[in-house]
């Protein structure tokens, strides 16, 4: 150690420079790998993908490859399936989100109280989150199958449908199959995020309110909700985007059918790329989806800003 210190004196300048260089570079050594990987596997392909949307790249038509300007977008404008898919995306997203959110909020509130066996309860009700999505989709597809699943019989029993048949084959109702599966799968996510937020509310606030004689409802609306609100806005926004992009459920359960009645934009991207191998067109749909989501996020953020200011 002593000798190391002596060495500093002659090469002082070099030591000084290397010290500061080290000091400046160290953080980048730690984030470097993450950045490189994200750059190579996400950002670069993203740019490539946007450029594809201006090209004709269909693996089944290898001789027509080349730049085509806005041709893909023009085709998209004419594509009825695309417009149906936009409507379906809205239904899929809103339907899933609405129920996920309220069921998740209820569950979070429940988990924020105390009762016997809560830990076990928590582990069990969060389980759907751990079920692989493809398996959730398959399970619900089976549950809706009148041969082996009980759902059609229950629905018929309740008088919601005339006879036990598979609603996944009914263009009017099919979308509710994947939506139900998605709700099942997504409730734990909301419950966990909201529970985390709930637990960060200082309990003194409740105790103070209790002393001030606030009723349960007042405590919920005057303390809990205002505290959760910012978290809720952000979570709902991110989750909306996530659900709109989430194609697995639909792809496995209905494949977009029957007759395109459950095709949403993201599953349309996937089927176009995977089945038709038409990468140019798929990328154009994806860019459209991206723009829609971007517009949505911007609107929501502006509204939030306005709300915060008033």
């Amino acid at each position: 150690m002593r000798s190391a210190r002596k060495n500093v004196v002659p090469g002082a300048d070099r030591a000084r420079r290397s010290f500061y260089l080290r000091y400046l570079l160290e953080p980048y050594l730690y984030v470097g790998p993450a950045l490189v990987l994200i750059g190579a596997v996400i950002l670069f392909p993203l740019i490539l993908g946007i450029s594809y949307s201006f090209q004709s790249i269909a693996l089944l038509k290898p001789f027509e490859t080349g730049w085509v300007g806005f041709e893909n977008y023009a085709a998209l404008w004419q594509d009825d399936k695309f417009w149906t898919a936009i409507g379906n995306t809205a239904l899929w997203t809103c339907g899933s989100l609405f129920f996920q959110f309220f069921l998740g909020l209820g569950l979070a509130l429940l988990l924020n109280t105390s009762f016997r066996g809560k830990r076990l309860f928590q582990a069990l009700v969060f389980l759907p989150w751990a079920v692989p999505t493809f398996l959730t989709a398959l399970t619900f597809a089976w549950l809706f199958n009148p041969v082996i699943g009980p759902f059609p019989h229950w629905l018929a029993g309740l008088g919601l449908i005339d006879e036990p048949y598979n609603i996944l084959g009914d263009p009017d109702l099919a979308m509710w199959g994947p939506i139900l599966a998605n709700i099942w799968f997504g409730v734990p996510f909301f419950a966990i995020t909201l529970l985390a937020a709930l637990q960060s509310i200082p309990s003194e606030l409740y105790e103070a309110a209790e002393i001030d004689g606030a009723s349960d409802w007042q405590r919920f609306s005057k303390i809990t909700l205002p505290f959760l609100a910012p978290m809720i806005v952000i979570t709902v926004m991110l989750r909306t985007i996530w659900i709109a992009n989430f194609a697995d459920m639909i792809y496995v359960m209905t494949g977009g059918g029957p007759a395109g009645s459950t095709e949403i934009l993201s599953s349309y991207v996937f089927t176009t790329a995977f089945r038709k191998l038409d990468f140019g067109y798929a990328s154009a749909i994806a860019v459209a989806l991206l723009l829609i989501l971007l517009a949505y996020a911007l609107i929501l953020l502006v509204v939030r800003q306005k709300l915060v200011r008033t």
Binding site: M1, A4, R5, V8, V9, A12, A15, R16, F19
Partner: peptide, 11 residues
């Protein structure tokens, strides 16, 4: 008398 600026805490 020995300059310390560039030494790490451990040194």
């Amino acid at each position: 008398g020995q300059r310390m600026n560039e030494l790490r805490p451990r040194d």
